[in-house]
Design a protein around this nucleic acid. Structure first.
Lengths: 203, 203
DNA sequence: GTCTATAGAAGGATAGAC
DNA sequence: GTCTATCCTTCTATAGAC
């Protein structure tokens, strides 16, 4: 593959990523992507046979990023509190660089439920699960975290990080009207959310 | 307007609501809606000139429900803690009956940013704001809630309620694999989320 | 590999009969 | 008010020249 060829393919992929992230599969137009890449539609089909193929390539890359990036955190040898602080710090920073990613993922997983099975199959949940239980057994007792409340806690942590980006349009609209700065809010949130969770689970 | 006519219009509206909630504006097909209502496409256009008109009618109704239903809570004479408990109880129950609503709203507000301005304009934010400040002035001191942290707190409350429905596909998929029941999780969440928030803000 | 031109399918919208 | 038939635009995809 020549350098030039690689550049074109990459340009297409980047443009497709941007357009799909913004418009989703249903709303995106091949013409938009071509314009964005500074080429014509036919070339899109030359590199990625169909719109479906192109979308799929984009989705696989993006979905991978989202989930693989934070799984290793669980393995490392830190306290639960350290992990929570680290998660909010890194995850919110990640979403600041990729603010449209959560809505994009959610929409595609609704549109095409088969994807969820594939995503979940790639995660070795039982291993993550037992790692978590072994590493933090004493802390679970200390914080009064039970088998019953773990899903509540996990989804709460995810919610506090992801929701501001999903509802960005509403939140930033409201904040503007009330004299708050959305970016400052996001920066402050890295600490606020961690404090919030730790306070909530402390006996 | 005859009874029969009213029934047809209503049937169309209900079918449109269902299809738009599931597929969004971009993904929905007039043919789908017609099939769903047991009529043909031409009749859709007879009642609601265009797809845009039909979508708009559905959106206005739904967006109204979401925001008007919970604004009055702020006015009533209850403690902050009572309001928080009431909110989670009612809001999660509401979303159990309308699980697709959050994603639908978010998508449309992203697709058409003009809507946000309209939605916000309909809310008298300054009034809500001053009501909140007056009613809970002492509690804000007691709980150490400041002008700076109010948006953090408000968005956290919204997040804990709404996120499980937005990410339902992923969460219920994971839970199934791990032996949890998603509906039981939602039921338990009404209390869990309230306890969680109150614990987090208590000095 | 890249372009122009166009085929072909899908979907929104309308005409006209009943 | 409701239907069938059809128009027209939009969009994906391909053919064929360079």
């Amino acid at each position: 593959m020549s350098e030039n060829e690689r550049q074109t393919e990459e340009k297409i992929f980047e443009s497709a990523t941007e357009v799909f992230l913004k418009k989703g599969m249903d709303g995106a137009r091949m013409q938009d992507i071509a314009n964005h890449a500074g080429i014509n539609k036919a070339l899109l089909h030359y590199y990625y046979r169909t719109k479906d193929h192109l979308f799929n390539a984009v989705f696989e890359k993006i979905a991978g990023q989202m989930f693989k990036k934070f799984a290793p955190v669980l393995d490392e040898n830190h306290s639960l509190e350290e992990k929570i602080r680290f998660f909010f710090q890194e995850h919110i920073s990640f979403l600041q660089r990729n603010p449209r990613l959560p809505v994009f993922l959610i929409n595609e997983l609704n549109r095409n439920p088969e994807r969820i099975k594939k995503l979940i199959k790639n995660l070795d949940i039982n291993k993550l699960w037992s790692t978590l239980e072994k590493q933090h057994k004493e802390e679970f007792v200390k914080y009064n975290i039970t088998k019953e409340t773990i899903p509540q806690l996990m989804t709460s942590i995810a919610a506090l990080s992801v929701f501001p980006f999903m509802a960005k349009a509403v939140i930033s609209g409201l904040m503007e009207k009330m004299g708050y700065d959305f970016n400052a809010y996001l920066e402050a949130r890295k600490k606020f959310a961690a404090d919030f969770v730790i306070k909530a689970i402390t006996k």
